[in-house]
Design a protein around this nucleic acid. Structure first.
Lengths: 327, 327
DNA sequence: TTGTATGCGTTATCAG
DNA sequence: CTGATAACGCATACAA
């Protein structure tokens, strides 16, 4: 007893604290978790022993017993992207404030990685998963046991999806270009076959174009799309890109071709994440309410974890048009 | 037996698989872990049962037994930053490829958060921690039991630090500005009191300036530094910022003041992360070998985890000067 | 080649 | 108010 060296070579456990304090481990557990009645004297003894031995409860053992890990899995394409970087920051932040930790998974948009991550997270007994990526939704996300929320992504029939109001965003972007006098407006987006809510950006674009008697022309992101667009449409005077990175590539290519923005070509992007706003403030864009999206996603997930049911599946949060110099 | 509904309302465990296959759970465990001799027949039976019941081993229970979680804690200021976003992406990627998962912690550079994360990670029995942030090194990072690696950050006396060759980077940046004819060069950096390896960027700057008979002038990041710099030094013609985000702010302020870059003012940053290169390609910068840093950090950590010792503490990886339009 | 019994560190039940 | 004991799901030593 009173051996301050107990913690030298081995992790100290409940038993060690109990020995040090001269009580049973049940009592120590009770002190630590504030359960039942304990005399002030033993409480003090125990706390001193905890302090002395620098004891840290083993969450793994605890998790095994209570059958809950307080861990949330996050599956997104990559943190190396302004939008996802910001989203993941907020997701982690909110989880942390609610006592949850996050296991991070960079799927790189690859189905095989996503699949193995999903499996891994289940083995690790995560309490729930928040996933988003512009992948097809074929995955085994339909385990009814597993609390799940998608961000801008349909995961399975009944899993909640949180996203910005993509349709409204697409509408605002297209309308702005039209209002600014563009006649030949082109839209760039991911493949429609991915069936993500981001498709609504395209739908809105097409609807607004038609309403204004213009011919909608959407290109799918891929090898040299931007060059192709310029080559095939020398008279293009407006481009609505479905994210800011693409918009920045458009700007770069326009510069290379000596096309003046905004005089000859107007460009608007989508996302409006902090880093993009900082590094490319001249880009007009549709800003997503990233923090609110993260917040809602976490709350919907926790509801599921706590067994509450929520009938609403789709959640759309309002976007914000940022008019800058490229329009 | 042969009840396909066993997995409806409860997590299926080893015992369930054993029952289904008509063997003991020891046998199932052996099949799953490829240990000892098993007949082809039982192996097949077991695998079928696993398939049928959609069994996922409980990593938590496994971790408890083998006293290892295969989880690495990552403590960094925020994923909402091009450099850290990219670094964390690679760290996670490399860990994943080696069978480790990562618990993500956004410290926001706050000491209190960092402290509580550190505690949390230990409770969760992570196998090791990789941390980086421009904080002071006062934390309780000196638990000799806990494998640890710092990135651009001194954590404690003997914990390995991986960083870019900050001194060489600072030298290259400063020398470039001098070579380009700048006479009045100013450096912006974090507080020297933080005692991070990034201070070497400042040291190199000061050394090179003195060598060239120029007067070194360093400003510390803070409220309105950039405005202050321009106000106090109307004749400044070169700025070396210790990261690209600051450099971009310098560019913005210069634009506001109608100072022409690079004609009247040359600017160089530090980091050269992918996103910055994409969104602000015109910025000259010192590029860190992010992937190599991540790779080395993980390998050094795993060495510690596996009990190998490594005497070298400081690891400096070569930087790459990217000359673009701002110089 | 397979099965039984034990323990990893914790919490909860129940008895004292 | 406190302590002994079982159980969480798994992997190992030891038997058979």
């Amino acid at each position: 007893m009173n051996n301050t060296n107990e913690n030298i070579n081995q992790k100290v456990k409940l038993d060690d604290v109990a020995n040090e304090a001269g009580v049973s481990k049940t009592t120590v557990s009770r002190v630590l978790n504030n359960r039942g009645y304990i005399s002030e004297k033993t409480r003090k003894k125990v706390n001193e022993a905890v302090e002395l031995l620098n004891y840290h409860p083993n969450e793994i053992a605890r998790s095994l017993f209570i059958n809950k890990t307080f861990i949330i899995g996050l599956i997104f394409p990559t943190t190396n992207n302004p939008f996802y970087g910001q989203l993941i920051f907020h997701l982690e932040n909110i989880c942390e404030s609610l006592g949850y930790k996050v296991l991070l998974c960079n799927s790189e948009g690859r189905e095989d990685k996503e699949k193995s991550y999903l499996e891994m997270l289940q083995r690790h007994q995560v309490d729930g998963i928040i996933a988003g990526s512009h992948n097809r939704g074929i995955l085994e996300y339909d385990n009814p046991q597993l609390p799940l929320v998608g961000i801008d992504r349909y995961l399975s029939e009944n899993t909640p999806v949180v996203s910005s109001d993509n349709y409204d965003g697409g509408k605002k972007a297209t309308q702005l270009l039209i209002d600014k006098g563009c006649k030949k407006i082109i839209h760039i987006n991911g493949s429609p076959s991915l069936e993500t809510p981001a498709n609504l950006r395209r739908e809105a674009y097409e609807d607004v174009m038609k309403e204004n008697q213009y011919y909608p022309q959407s290109y799918v992101i891929g090898e040299n799309v931007i060059e192709t667009i310029f080559n095939e449409n020398p008279d293009v005077d407006g481009i609505f890109a479905s994210d800011d990175l693409i918009a920045s590539s458009v700007m770069k290519e326009a510069k290379r071709r000596n096309i003046n923005i905004p005089a000859d070509l107007k460009v608007i992007g989508y996302d409006g994440s902090e880093i993009t706003r900082m590094l490319l403030p001249e880009l007009s864009t549709i800003q997503q309410p990233v923090k609110e999206i993260a917040n809602l996603a976490v709350r919907l997930l926790l509801k599921q974890i706590e067994g509450e049911t929520e009938s609403q599946i789709e959640w759309k949060l309002p976007v914000n048009l940022i008019e800058s110099e490229t329009t």
